[in-house]
Computed example of a mutant assay.
Amino acid sequence: MSDKLTHFNEEGHAIMVDVTDKVATQREAVAKGKIVVSQEIIDRIKNNEIEKGDVLGIARIAGIMAVKKTSELIPLCHPLFISKCAIDFEINEAESYIEASCTVKVDQKTGVEMEALTGVNIALLTIYDMCKAIDKKMELTDIRLCYKSGGKSGVFVNEERS
């Protein structure tokens, strides 16, 4: 692994990494995160009783849309043609949270870690937005990259946090 900061030129100015000479490879990234919510929110989501609509369905679409717009949000990210994007949710009633998982695949010259992380964040923020009238104390937590493959650096598995 190189410790060279690739987003800076010799003068120390921020640049977009030059991927011209890189080979396109299949790349995949999986990110996860949680939103801690009240039992009332869990119950109302499960029973489709949130006035704004299908919370997880809308959060899924918001996360997918965010993945496609990552390069517009993160200044030095390359625009990518997304081959696959999936946002999934798991409700943990015992610990009162909803976990979002975002899987993104491309066949490109640069990775999709930022896209997966963006998708998770926006999906969770959408849940917050749709439920904030019930409880504003919700907390986004444990947002992390769990897996990535492809490219020169190969496979990364966040075994401690998958």
Rank of each mutant, 00 (worst) to 15 (best):
I91Q: 07
G119R: 08
D142V: 00
D142C: 01
I143Y: 05
E90V: 13
E95F: 13
T118A: 10
K152I: 11
K137E: 06
A116L: 06
Y97H: 14
E99N: 07
A116R: 04
Y147W: 10
K137S: 11
L117H: 06
K105S: 13
E113L: 08
Y147P: 02
V155F: 12
D142P: 00
T141I: 09
A133E: 01
D107Y: 14
A100Q: 08
V112A: 09
G150E: 02
Q108I: 01
E139R: 15
E115Y: 07
G119T: 10
D88V: 03
D88P: 03
L140P: 01
S101Y: 08
S149Q: 13
K137G: 00
A100S: 15
C131M: 07
Y147E: 14
C146E: 12
V155H: 09
Y128G: 04
D88S: 14
K148D: 03
N158K: 12
A123S: 15
D135K: 06
E99L: 11
I91T: 05
D129V: 02
K105E: 15
N158S: 12
C131N: 03
V157T: 14
F89N: 00
C146R: 05
I98T: 02
V106Q: 04
T118D: 08
K148Y: 09
T110V: 01
E160H: 08
N158Y: 11
T126G: 06
E95Q: 15
E90W: 04
S149H: 07
R161W: 08
S153K: 14
D135M: 07
M130Q: 11
G151W: 00
K136M: 07
I122A: 09
E160M: 09
V112G: 02
I122D: 06
M138R: 02
V155M: 13
L125Q: 11
V157M: 10
G154I: 09
V157I: 15
N92S: 12
T141D: 11
T110W: 02
V104L: 04
E95D: 15
L124G: 00
T110A: 07
V157Q: 10
M138N: 01
R161C: 12
M130G: 07
F89A: 00
E93M: 08
K148G: 04
D129Y: 03
V120D: 07
N158I: 12
T103M: 13
M130F: 10
K137I: 01
T110N: 03
L125T: 03
A94Y: 05
S96L: 12
V157L: 12
F156V: 06
L124W: 06
